[in-house]
Every structure is written in structure tokens, then in C-alpha cells.
Write a protein that binds this DNA or RNA. Structure first.
Length: 505
RNA sequence: GGGAGCGUAGCUCAACUGGCAGAGCAAUGGACUCUUAAUCCAUAGGUUGUGGGUUCGAUUCCCUCCGCUCUCACCA
């Protein structure tokens, strides 16, 4: 590294190291520990919100002791204002030479980004801002790197995701997103706990690929010398627990799918899955309305939520439409009986397929699979308001119970909002012989070249043979729900550390 | 993986048709005891993502590679 060519960042770094030394010279460890502030910025602000300068003065100004990061620093020679931020809010601190005496010299060695503590009486300044006049001032942690610019903040999305800590400092609204996400998850836990569900944790590393149609990550255990799959879904484990008598269980945890990344897909994402014995998929539609409309209110304050410019109404009474009807609404040429006719469905599906690989795959699909394709092609994206789509083909529902009247469809629904799948639920298939056949059909689909298929899970069949009570289960994508409630255009905005390609070196 | 776009100072952004790389904030030195993007004076800060090519001359045009964004495919 050439000595003459010192970058700006290195220059600031060196300057700040020197300032840290000045702290030490003044008797303060720039990386010390053990200071416990007695008050919080936000609480002070709330408590004295309505009080004028005179009222504060008359009552005898209360003394407060706060600590936080300096996010703004303005010096006027013999006086300076700092703005401190802690976890509850921001508060201005005034440093005065005539109050602090020698201690005021430390000001020269402060930067925006440093952590400090200040103690003193609370006043209102001439411009009306609540301000602690520091009588005691304690530097706590020296920051060696400069903060992003105060006015424009940090907008480079790559830096925002890679260095989320900087994003949180520079863009306070980011914190609100994750507070809302936290409120969402807490609401769901309280909702399910109140209904007698118990929260469990099932394996993340699976010997088999099961529970969903997706490509897995493969990992290896050294001591056992076996390959394992990062789970794509917890489904089969949770249902084993229902077999064991845990009649209402849920898990909120990560799933991993080795697929593309987009504004709606992160390789690891958070799913709620819950299972309720003696319930049907129709019961779960009611429960889902209750839970999600309640969550909308708990998180945003209203059941009407504006997402990317369009109002979504989560008030109960959502539309319930069969998949066939949803397709027929967009493709009127299809008659109800056509959904048994693979050739007819294929002809319609091919109209919208232009990639050769896609067309080739369509050639071997059966009627049920083609119906799924047609739904995605024509209907899915148009479902803006919360809508339950029901009666999924059995061919694309390997774990769902067949409908009693129509065995080619299942007792299943998915919830769509803003054109996206948010939830997937069904009455569980608890007939072990039928389940065997469905697993075999998955193997057959794999033979045909479908990459996303489930393995045959012998132990799961054995569990079913011991008896799974009539049960309904559901999975809800927490990240996507969080997107809707925080008006986030990208899933990366609701995941603290989304997966990015590592930078070279 | 395909397509489109982007990458300039620590941050936010300029630089016309190819002609001396600039501003604001941040930084440094100075003035200032009530600021709210404080103000004023001065100073410093760059291998224009990387590597190559065209050209008298490249931030600008072409190609390689790296990263990001959007989009299609896959999926939730």
C-alpha cells in the first residue's frame, strides 16, 4: 500500500484513532463498559411533551441521565448541541463551556457516530426543543468510521442490505419495519397460544426431501458421514406430532429452498405452519380470516392497508372461489368438464408458453398439473383483495385429502393477496394407503423430469398407519405478510440480512 | 440461467456530441453561547467497480469480468 496515497476513509480513520487517544488522555476508555444510564430519551420526551420552558423551570428542572449515539453535532464555539439517539428515541444535549469547564475540551474529539452519556437538568431551548444541559458528560465508545450523510441518508440498496447496521442508523424508518414484523409474529403467537396450540421446533436438517415441491440445499454431517437436506418445510414432522397426540401444534421458523432470488423470494424465509386436529380446511379459512385481519389491525392499526398504492381490505368475509371458477373467469372458453381433459387444457396453456423448455415440460403434464399452470397464467396475479382459492387438483397436492365427491380435487385452499400466495392449507391426507400412492406419483413425476418433487417417506407412512386423527393444517409466509403490512416492495426489505452474493476477496 | 439498466470523493449526486473529473454534506484549521439540513472564511480529499480495446485524447464508445437493481423462468 503506497503511503502517499491515503484514502479519505483511511485519513478519517487515523484522525479518529488520535481522538480516541485524547479520550484516554482525559481518563475515558473509548471502549469502556459499565455505564448504565438511568433514563431513556423517548420516555423523557413523552413525559414532558406539553410542558413549556417556564413550566419546566418553575417546577425546578428535573435531572436526567441518558446515553446514546451522537447522530448530529453542532458547535458554536463555547457551546454545542448534540442529538443523542437511544432505542426509544432522540434527545438534544447541550454542552456549555461555562458549565463543563475543562471537560468541555473533549468536544473537539467528538464525532457524529460516537456513543456518549450526559446528565443534567432538562430545559427547553429558545426554539422549543427539550434539551439536557450536560453537567456531567461521559464519552463511551469511539466510532472510527464516518456515518452516511445526514440529509440524504443511505440510499444505495446494496450497502443498505450488506451493512444493515448502517441502514438502521441512517434510515430510522427501517427500524419501524422490523418493529412491525416483530409485532406481527408476536400477534400470531398470542393468537395461536390462546387457542390451545403449542409451539414446537422440529428438525431443520432432514434426511429426506419432504413437505413441499422445491429444490433443497444439501449439507453434510461429518461424524455420521451422511448428506442432509436443509428443510424445505416442517410439514411431515408436525403431523407426526399430531399422531403423537399434540393435537394443536405450530412452528414459526426458517425454511430453505434452493431456487431463484427475487423481490418475493429469499433462499431462507420464515413460515408459520400449524396443525389442528378435528378441523377441516373450511374451519381454517375462518381461522385465517380471523388471524390475518386481527394481525393487520395489530400491526397497522386498521384492517384496511395500503400496499404499493392499492388498498387491501382485510376485513372478514373474503371471497372463496374454486380454482376452476377462477380460471374460467379469465378463460371463458373453458367449460367445467374441460378440466378433466388434459389435451384441451394443454392447448390453452401452450398459448402462453414461449420458452421451449417450458413447452416441453407441458407435454407430459396431466390434467391436474395443467390446471395449476392455467391458474398461475391467468388468475393468480389478478387476485388483489384477499381471496381463498379452493378445490386444488389432487395431482399438485400430494399431502392433501381428496374431496369426498370429487377425488380428482382436494380439500385445499390457498390465500392470495396482492397477486401473491400468502397461505396454503388443506385437510390432511390421513389415509396411509392413499398417501403411499401419492408418494409413488411423486417418484413418477421425478422420472418425467420434474425437479421439485418429494421423496418417499417410509417413516411418515408408518406414522399414518398408527393413525393421524382428522386434521387440517396450514402454512403462512411470514415475510410476505410482513411485506403487505409494511408496504415493502421487496422481501429483502423485511429480512434483516437477505442473501447477497459475497463480494470478492 | 435469459433479458434490460446501473456502478464517479466516506455519503448524496453532476460532468453537453469523446476534450483540464466538479458540487453539497461529512472531514481538517479558524470565527461564533440557542442550533434544527446552523452560518461564515480557508484547506484537503479521486487508479471514475475490474481488466483489456478503439482514439492524439475515454467517466463518456466497444469487449471481458465483478457486484447490485428490475424483469422472465423456478418457487412460497
Amino acid at each position: 500500500m503506497p503511503d502517499e496515497q491515503v484514502s479519505k476513509e483511511q485519513e478519517i480513520y487515523a484522525q479518529r484513532l488520535e481522538k480516541a487517544q485524547k479520550w484516554r488522555d482525559a481518563g475515558f476508555n473509548p471502549y469502556g463498559n459499565g455505564y448504565t444510564p438511568r433514563h431513556l430519551a423517548g420516555e423523557i420526551g413523552t413525559r414532558h411533551e406539553g410542558q413549556s420552558a417556564e413550566e419546566l423551570e418553575k417546577a425546578g428542572p428535573p435531572t436526567y441521565d441518558v446515553a446514546g449515539r451522537i447522530i448530529l453535532l453542532r458547535s458554536f464555539g463555547k457551546m454545542a448541541f448534540l442529538k443523542l439517539r437511544d432505542r426509544t428515541g432522540e434527545l438534544q444535549v447541550q454542552l456549555k463551556k461555562d458549565v463543563l469547564g475543562e471537560g468541555y475540551e473533549l468536544l473537539k474529539h467528538l464525532d457524529a457516530g460516537d456513543f456518549v452519556a450526559a446528565e443534567g437538568p432538562l430545559i427547553r431551548t429558545k426554539t422549543g426543543e427539550l434539551t439536557i444541559v450536560a453537567q456531567r458528560f461521559t464519552p463511551l465508545t469511539k466510532s472510527l468510521l464516518p456515518l452516511p450523510e445526514k440529509w440524504h441518508g443511505l440510499t444505495d440498496v446494496e450497502v443498505r442490505y450488506r451493512q444493515r447496521y448502517l441502514d438502521l442508523v441512517a434510515n430510522p424508518e427501517v427500524k419501524d419495519v422490523f418493529l412491525k414484523r416483530n409485532r406481527l409474529v408476536r400477534y400470531i403467537r398470542e393468537f395461536l397460544d390462546a387457542r390451545g396450540f403449542i409451539e414446537v421446533e422440529t428438525p431443520m436438517m432432514h434426511p429426506l426431501v419432504s413437505g413441499a415441491a422445491a429444490r433443497p440445499f444439501v449439507t453434510h454431517h461429518n461424524a455420521l458421514d451422511i448428506d442432509l437436506f436443509m428443510r424445505i418445510a416442517p410439514e411431515l414432522y408436525l403431523k407426526r406430532l399430531v399422531v403423537g397426540g399434540l393435537e394443536r401444534v405450530y412452528e414459526i421458523n426458517r425454511n430453505f429452498r434452493n431456487e431463484g432470488i427475487s423481490t418475493r423470494h429469499n433462499p431462507e424465509f420464515t413460515m408459520l405452519e400449524f396443525y389442528q386436529a378435528y378441523a377441516t380446511y373450511e374451519d381454517l379459512m375462518d381461522l385465517t380470516e380471523e388471524m390475518i385481519s386481527g394481525a393487520a389491525r395489530a400491526v397497522t392499526g386498521d384492517t384496511k392497508v395500503v400496499y404499493q398504492g392499492q388498498e387491501l381490505d382485510f376485513s372478514k368475509g373474503w371471497k372463496r372461489v374454486s380454482m376452476a371458477d377462477a380460471i374460467r373467469e379469465k378463460v371463458p372458453s373453458l367449460a367445467p368438464e374441460d378440466f378433466q381433459d388434459a389435451e384441451k387444457l394443454r392447448a390453452v396453456a401452450l398459448e402462453k408458453m414461449h420458452v421451449q423448455a417450458e413447452r416441453t415440460a407441458a407435454m407430459t403434464m396431466n390434467a391436474g398439473e395443467l390446471m395449476g399452470v392455467l391458474f398461475e397464467q391467468h388468475a393468480e396475479g389478478t387476485l388483489v383483495q384477499p381471496t381463498f382459492i379452493t378445490h386444488f387438483p389432487t395431482a399438485v397436492s400430494p399431502l392433501a385429502r381428496r374431496n369426498d365427491e370429487h377425488p380428482e380435487i382436494t380439500d385445499r385452499f390457498e390465500l392470495f393477496v396482492a397477486g401473491r400466495e400468502i397461505a396454503n392449507a388443506f385437510s390432511e391426507l390421513n389415509d396411509p394407503l392413499d398417501q403411499k400412492g401419492r408418494f409413488l406419483a411423486q417418484l413418477e413425476a421425478k422420472q418425467r423430469g420434474q425437479a421439485e418433487t418429494m421423496d418417499y417417506d417410509e417413516d411418515y407412512i408408518r406414522a399414518l398407519e398408527h393413525g393421524l386423527p382428522p386434521t387440517a393444517g396450514e402454512g403462512i409466509g411470514i415475510d410476505r405478510l410482513a411485506m403487505l403490512f409494511t408496504d415493502a416492495p421487496s422481501i429483502r426489505d423485511v429480512i434483516l440480512f437477505p442473501l447477497l452474493k459475497p463480494l470478492p476477496r
